[in-house]
């Protein structure tokens, strides 16, 4: 009876079809893309090269931010856009990202009852914001094309681009001058650093090249940290930064560039938004941002954010509910 060659395909095909069936059944029945407040929080963070992370941690923890270890079990991703992609696909996640990057695929979580509107930021009611800037070597500015680019970055045209990208213009008491193109300007400008600033810099670059077609701008982005290293080692002319540049940063760069040789140009103010999945009812979409105070029980406090992220905080939130109710 047991002649396998006759039934060569029957058992195999049956088993295979069966398993295919089960797998697709699982796939169909297991889809549950909804946020539940009684389920765990998944922390999405940038890697340690990131200026966004540095800024966020400094705002939460102060100057000791570098010593803070990210809660074990968090997901570390390499770029601002990756955070967005991850949070928008994971119902239980919470992340932080540059406000300029955020779109309606995620929702914004109020922090200490305030949403990151321009007014709230300028009034410092929403406290999570940082300046975007570039660092450079002052002695290099003797080169015409480099100082021209520096001037351009502080001009009205540049600030128009800043605003169009969704950032807040850096407040300036004197206002912004118009940039006037210089004839016959040639040279290569090397720009590197923060991935947060890079998209805006791309636009600035295109605009500058419209004015000065004979110049070249090489733009790479590996993080604010590498940007500082590049200025220190003279691998780059402008280092993009997405966090407050502290004195210790400047001291470190001066080791390579020379004392007093480090200059900084501020480009914009960027808020750091705390983002959650679009099915998370605690959050508000970016298009619905309002200056008003948000109801209690629906926002997260700075202290709880700090407790959530710090591995050594002694506090561990098993679910969203636990974090919202923690005092």
């Amino acid at each position: 009876m047991f002649i396998v060659s006759k039934n060569k395909f029957s058992i195999a095909t049956k088993l295979s079809a069966l398993l295919l069936f089960i797998v697709s059944v699982f796939g169909l029945t297991a889809c549950d893309y909804q946020f539940r407040v009684d389920r765990p929080i998944i922390i999405i963070s940038r890697d340690s090269a990131s200026g966004t992370r540095e800024a966020f941690f400094t705002l939460l923890f102060g100057s000791k931010q570098a010593d803070i270890r990210l809660k074990l079990g968090s997901i570390e991703l390499n770029s601002t856009a990756a955070i967005l992609a991850r949070v928008s696909s994971d119902p239980q996640s919470i992340g932080y990202d540059s406000l300029g990057f955020v779109n309606d695929s995620v929702k914004l979580l109020p922090v200490d009852k305030y949403l990151p509107t321009t007014q709230n930021i300028l009034d410092d009611k929403y406290k999570l914001w940082r300046p975007l800037s570039v660092l450079y070597r002052i002695d290099r500015m003797k080169q015409r094309h480099l100082s021209a680019f520096n001037d351009f970055l502080q001009s009205q045209q540049a600030q128009d681009i800043v605003q169009s990208r969704g950032y807040v213009n850096f407040p300036s008491s004197e206002g912004y001058a118009e940039y006037k193109p210089i004839a016959d300007l040639v040279g290569t400008i090397r720009v590197s650093g923060s991935t947060t600033v890079e998209p805006m810099m791309q636009r600035l670059r295109e605009k500058f090249l419209d004015y000065q077609p004979n110049c070249k701008i090489e733009l790479t982005a590996a993080g604010s940290g590498p940007g500082r290293n590049d200025i220190k080692n003279d691998n780059s002319d402008f280092g993009m930064q997405s966090a407050v540049v502290t004195q210790s940063h400047i001291d470190d760069i001066e080791q390579g560039a020379g004392v007093g040789n480090v200059g900084q140009t501020n480009l914009a103010i960027d808020a750091i938004a705390v983002i959650v999945h679009s099915s998370n009812y605690l959050g508000i979409p970016k298009s619905d941002l309002t200056d008003d105070i948000q109801e209690q029980g629906q926002s997260v406090t700075m202290q709880n954010l700090a407790n959530l992220i710090d591995n050594d905080s002694g506090v561990s939130f098993a679910t969203w509910k636990a974090m919202l109710e923690f005092q």
């Binding site: 990210l70 809660k71 074990l72 079990g73 968090s74 997901i75 570390e76």
Partner: peptide
């Protein structure tokens, strides 16, 4: 892989 430098204790953790 997730990227969190913790000792692995489960198939599904960062």
């Amino acid at each position: 892989i997730g990227g969190s430098p913790q000792i692995p204790t489960s198939w599904l953790q960062s």
